[in-house]
């Protein structure tokens, strides 16, 4: 019983962190109606950044966020200007191939610069917190708390500020928003850069928990897409809910199912969700069944 409790608790915490990584993707998908296939590589680059700051400057990854988050915002803005924006008025395939190419590019630059070795940072907190029979890693708990704070702040921003309202209007109907005088191109830029900045934050939270290597993005991007589909496109609460589900499933299956399956977990989970739940947990928005010709 306590094993089960332990697994569920760690699953929820790790799921929260997955959600943080997916919020950027769901925002970009909801607002721009495009998918950034290089999302996982953005995470990879940011993780290397956090790793470098930790190793070279002797700081910890949470402090690194102060530099990584703005750097990823800038990086996102540059990618938007150079690749996404020119591709927006072209057939959807152009964005697909261009961001896919960007992902291959980033993977292989990372491979050339950093080799294929796994990099990690030393543990930050020596001990786990104990609540009754359950151990909780401080890094996990901290990551979860950061995610919750971040989600609440984003929700507040989207509900109350002008920028947030403009984003919501664009999610609902981009053309109508444009007619209402919302500067849609600027909203696109800010969303894309902001989504990238969130990935930067996620990378700093994840660095103490995971190793980084050039193709680390693939596993995580599949998780992020699963979360976006489960939670509904463009929904931040949905991402949190989806993330927690994925985290718990992963935590339980890693214990109860053969470990050889572990390598396949992300891929099988992705296909499973795509086959059986392509319209999300609540069946509200058919993120996965939306075509390219929209």
């Amino acid at each position: 019983m306590s094993t089960l409790g332990q697994l569920v608790i760690s699953g929820i915490l790790i799921g929260g962190i997955y959600a943080l990584m997916s919020i950027g993707l769901t925002l970009i998908f909801g607002v721009l109606r495009i998918v950034n296939f290089a999302h996982g590589e953005f995470l990879m680059v940011a993780m290397y950044g956090a790793w470098a700051i930790t190793r070279l400057l002797g700081l910890n990854p949470y402090v690194a966020a102060v530099a990584i988050v703005p750097a990823m915002f800038l990086f996102g803005a540059i990618v938007y200007r150079m690749i996404i924006n020119p591709a927006l008025d072209k057939p959807h395939l152009v964005v697909v191939f261009a961001t896919m190419a960007l992902s291959i590019f980033m993977q292989n630059v990372a491979l050339m610069m950093m080799t294929a070795d796994l990099m990690d940072v030393p543990p930050i907190f020596g001990r786990s917190i104990t609540i009754g029979p359950i151990y909780i890693k401080v890094e996990l708990l901290l990551g979860f708390i950061i995610t919750i704070l971040c989600t609440v702040a984003l929700q507040w921003m989207i509900k109350t500020t002008y920028l947030g309202k403009a984003i919501r209007a664009t999610v609902q109907d981009g053309e109508a928003a444009m007619l209402m005088g919302i500067p849609v191109p600027r909203i696109f830029l800010i969303t894309f850069a902001g989504g990238s900045a969130l990935v930067g934050l996620a990378a700093c939270v994840m660095m103490p928990l995971f190793s980084v290597f050039p193709t680390v993005g693939l596993n995580f991007v599949l998780i992020a897409f699963v979360i976006v589909v489960l939670g509904g496109m463009g929904s931040i609460e949905g991402a949190l809910l989806g993330g927690i589900c994925v985290g718990v499933v992963q935590s339980l299956s890693s214990y109860y199912v053969a470990p050889a399956f572990g390598q396949m977990f992300f891929f099988v989970l992705f296909l499973f969700v795509m086959i059986f739940r392509p319209n999300g947990l609540l069946g509200q928005k058919g993120a996965a069944t939306i075509g390219m010709n929209e």
Binding site: V35, M100, V229, F266, F270, M274, A288, T289, I290, M292
Partner: peptide, 11 residues
């Protein structure tokens, strides 16, 4: 359709 089809082929 679209991106999810592509990612499924990858997976």
């Amino acid at each position: 359709r679209g991106p999810f089809f592509i990612l499924s082929t990858l997976a």
